[in-house]
Nucleic acid binder design. Structure first.
Lengths: 194, 194, 194, 194
DNA sequence: AATGAATGAGGATTCATTCAT
DNA sequence: CATGAATGAATCCTCATTCAT
């Protein structure tokens, strides 16, 4: 989509004078998420993000006004990505049984497949615990998850599954031993009414 | 005054014995947890902690060597407190049924009773996600929780309950609507095998 | 729309003629004075002035070349306004006695009627104290004041009155208690020879 | 006074490691006034002041907390110095006539003897025009001036003289031609009742 | 002619840590 | 033993100005 609009690498900007760089905003957001995933929110200084994105420091506050605004944009992007993946999984399920399979796969494969996502998630929750603006992001995200689950499950089961997924992925990612598919499937099954 | 509490020469040098002024050390740890609960780890500067504890700035590095060491001590204290409360709950249960009741009470009452505990938990998890030293703390804590649960439940159920508790408390604390006792009891019941 | 106000080709190039959009230029100057009156010269950034004037940022340097030039234009406008008011007052006086009345009214009513004018005056003097370009503005202004006073008073009295007006208005504006008309009239009377 | 307590240049501190530098606070204040006199308040950055004082940048906020606090301390010092000079002049006068002579000398010699004092005065007034904290400084200063004048003159005359002194010194310093002693004496004489 | 995207230089401030006392 | 004065490094942010369009 966005690639189709580009004629070539230097179509709009020269490398030395990148004025009117349309992708810069997105580039900065991605760099911010990378840096946060690496060194956490507290370690993600404007300078580190700028360096990682390959843009001048001044452009960060030009595009985002403040570090807080950048963090907000970054975590909105993160939540969007993860929620979309979740919804995609759920949309493939045609019945509760296949939905359960998708949930197991999701826990085993998607979530926290890497350190980056685990850290991003935790950092977002931590901000949400203290700062209303980030709470809004997690609220919207949780609502989407629950809505996706509600396509196949009754409200209580949807909420229970949501919580179980949260707990299993976190313990799986933080815990010492690997999550085991049979165990995950069993727990998901127990939450779902027969 | 403070000298009267010292037992002898070894009290100053042995790492296992309380050295210097134990009360002051503890006071600093509690102050650190308070400040972290208020402004997060990144906002918890040595000066803020010292001010909150009512101790001179220099005493922080005197007692803890570095900020990192102080954070570690603080989160060890936090984990200890929460784990002890969990174990206490579990020790009151004489059968799986009463254990389930305790778990429900624990989710509804104990965890994240206040903003402070929610923030502390999230901050600890966030550090654990990136830094091995803090992972050790969460590992030990999780092991204790699981051990407590294993007194009444089989290993899989214990792990499942642990995850469910984690997910429910987090979603309860972060989510928009209050947790409902009937719902919590139902979900706990589903995880537990009949 | 804005093009219709241009007289011809020379309107764009002659420095003495209004070029480009005179209204916009004037609008910027007024906005600059407002902002300076509010947050001082040091707080009057190009962006704040542009926002206040409702014009694009780029137009400031387009019309004024640099911030310095804008400040100069703004303070020239300010001095012109105040000097004109002063001359108007003086022109109403037909004899020294009525001139004294006008001076008293001027001190009591005109000068520093608001915070904005007080600040603008002080900011201009402060610049004049260090920077020759602004000294030129205050020099011309003082010369006009003195000339206006000289219509009714001998040179020494004119200079004395000028200084007294300066001191009374400043102390009246900065001081804690209101200026009292009887007192002002008495002091003006003392400076004027019988 | 303070010199008597010093044994030698390196009595307390070594040049390379100036810990516990008792005079540092005062040194910074003086440097701040120098820099302000040179480049104005807006040009007086913490770094310039630190460089001028020969102290590390970090020590400025250590001693003063913020730039505002430093500016306040600096202008308090300035006001104190000038007010003390004024009071000293006035204390030498034993009768209104000699007081008038002192006032003339003060206008001709003391005030704005140099660019530095003129700038400092104007900068202080400018801040006072917008910021209450600095208004307090000018209020206290004016009260002292008036009190000193009231030793020899009735209240109205004291206030009138105060204003005249203000206006004459300012116009003398900013104006194009030098102040003339005969003229100053005449104006001071006119304000004082016979 | 007019604009606004872009940026480098410099702004104030915070802070963990050091170490002379 | 305990302290707090001291600091350099790094923080976020502001801004006048430039210049491709």
């Amino acid at each position: 989509m966005s690639g189709a609009e580009q004629v070539g690498d230097q179509s709009r900007t020269s490398p030395t004078n990148p004025r009117y760089d349309v992708h810069r905003r997105e580039k900065i957001v991605v760099a911010a998420l990378d840096v946060i995933g690496d060194v956490g929110v507290s370690g993600a200084s404007m300078r580190k993000v700028a360096d990682h994105a390959g843009v001048p420091l001044g452009s960060l506050t030009y595009y985002f006004g403040s570090r807080d605004e950048l963090l907000r944009a970054a975590f909105e992007e993160h939540a969007e990505t993860v929620a979309a993946k979740f919804e995609s999984r759920m949309s493939h399920a045609s019945c509760p049984a296949s939905a359960q399979e998708e949930i197991v796969a999701l826990i085993m494969e998607d979530m926290f497949a890497n350190q980056r996502e685990l850290v991003l998630n935790q950092e977002l929750y931590t901000l949400a615990a203290r700062i209303p603006a980030f709470r809004e992001i997690t609220d919207a995200w949780m609502a989407r998850s629950r809505a996706a689950l509600s396509q196949q499950f009754d409200p209580d089961t949807a909420r229970g599954l949501d919580a179980l997924i949260e707990g299993l992925t976190l313990h799986g990612a933080l815990g010492t031993h690997q999550l085991d598919q049979r165990f995950v499937a069993a727990m998901v099954g127990r939450i779902c009414p027969v």
